[in-house]
Design a binder for these strands. Structure first.
Lengths: 232, 232
DNA sequence: CCTGTAGATCTACAGTGTAGACAAGAAGCG
DNA sequence: CGCTTCTTGTCTACACTGTAGATCTACAGG
């Protein structure tokens, strides 16, 4: 009944541990959104006193950080196959997008959370992708400084795209169409002439394709702006 | 004393209105962060009962939306001068960055807020930039569909950059250096060989330059991927 | 003057994060 | 086994939060 078994573990089974708590928190956020994650509700989901959670997470913020880490662990990190650095970046982008779409409610925390957590102090899991990309680029012949620039452009664009995509397709497409047209109708024609004609294009949004296209743009710009010194 | 006059209006002076309330909310967020914005504190800042605010903002969420709108109004929108669309996009990017850096605490809401607010229903102020960019690109010879793609790539990258920049320079640079080095030291050398050598590069971050460089990359990719049909 | 109405206030409720004291239970060791 | 120690869970309590609903106040138009 209620919300006792959010996943597979039945409550009171055995002692809590951090994994279980964070996992349950993620389930709760996935199911009911960020605001639904309160210590009391989470305690209830686990069949424990809310205060029990504090043995495994220092605070709500810290718990959320754990949730982010857990989500990022879902990102599959592929070994360096032989393909070009461009193709590898492209694949990593799609992979991160995939995971983010599985946990849309967590995305705001992912992109916004590490604010005010200085880079050096972040959990190792969060830094792993950075290291990987740097290695990839340096191996491809970039100087360390350029690799850093490329990394920033890459992740900047990627995060930006994911945010945009989540904004674009919230409601189900059915009522989305009506809503969009109605919304556009509301705009004064003289102030928004172009936007009002965009309804068909706005409805045909395809996130994967859009990301791929964006990546093409970015990568083509990248390899034009920074030519890697040695292509082996 | 306390926090009665956050700006220039003294409390009890005359009747409240939405402008005053939202303005005070922005001041509060700028000064003490997002979490400091509560109806009670805001009421106190204005010398009124907290409940009075509900006559001018339907809820805390709606109040925050007003704050975002207010910030975005600070973005100066330049008329179409003769320069190329690339230069105009570049200038708009710098302008948005400038405003966001003036209100870093609001940025999470800016990039995250419009989630779950379907495009058609957003306040006109938020849609103005979209319309402007579309017009600019279409005038430059892009098809509407391509203009939309370019817009998405542009704003995706821009938002991503701003988020990244805010993450990079939170603390004051003085203690940032020590902290960064200490943080990097903590990482195991075998897992993070590149990152650990990056300290000097990481310390020389220049957001404006980084954005400009990123824009160059993006724009160069853009004009290579989509050739505007007619350059007039 | 009186009255209608919009604005401001008061009270109250359900919910929040979490500090601090305490109990129950597992684990180590003789 | 008993005894101690440390970890984990529970309970109570406090200072907050957003906001619904009723009530009071002040100003508008007649």
């Amino acid at each position: 009944m209620e919300r006792t078994d959010t996943a597979g573990y039945d409550p009171r089974a055995r002692r809590l541990n951090r994994r279980i708590v964070v996992r349950a928190a993620l389930d709760l956020v996935d199911a009911d959104g960020l605001e639904a994650l309160s210590m009391r509700r989470l305690g209830q989901a686990l069949g424990r006193d809310p205060m029990a959670l504090y043995r495994h997470a220092a605070s709500r913020k810290e718990l959320l950080a754990g949730v982010v880490e857990l989500v990022l662990e879902e990102v599959e990190v592929f070994p360096d196959d032989g393909t070009s650095w461009e193709e590898q970046l492209r694949r990593m982008a799609h992979e991160l997008r995939r995971v983010c779409l599985l946990h849309p409610n967590v995305v705001p925390v992912i992109v916004t959370g590490p604010l005010s957590t200085p880079l050096g102090l972040r959990p190792a899991g969060t830094l792993k992708p950075l290291e990987q990309v740097l290695g990839l680029l340096i191996d491809a012949g970039f100087t360390p400084a350029d690799a850093l620039h490329v990394y920033r452009a890459f992740y900047g664009f990627l995060y930006g795209h994911i945010l945009n995509e989540l904004q674009e397709l919230i409601a189900d497409p059915e009522e989305n169409e009506a809503l969009l047209r109605l919304g556009l109708q509301r705009l004064p024609l003289r102030d928004f002439p172009h936007l009002r004609r965009m309804a068909p294009e706005l409805l045909e949004y395809n996130g994967e394709q859009e990301l791929d296209q964006g990546m093409s743009i970015l990568l083509s710009g990248l390899s034009q702006q920074f030519a890697p010194a040695a292509a082996i």
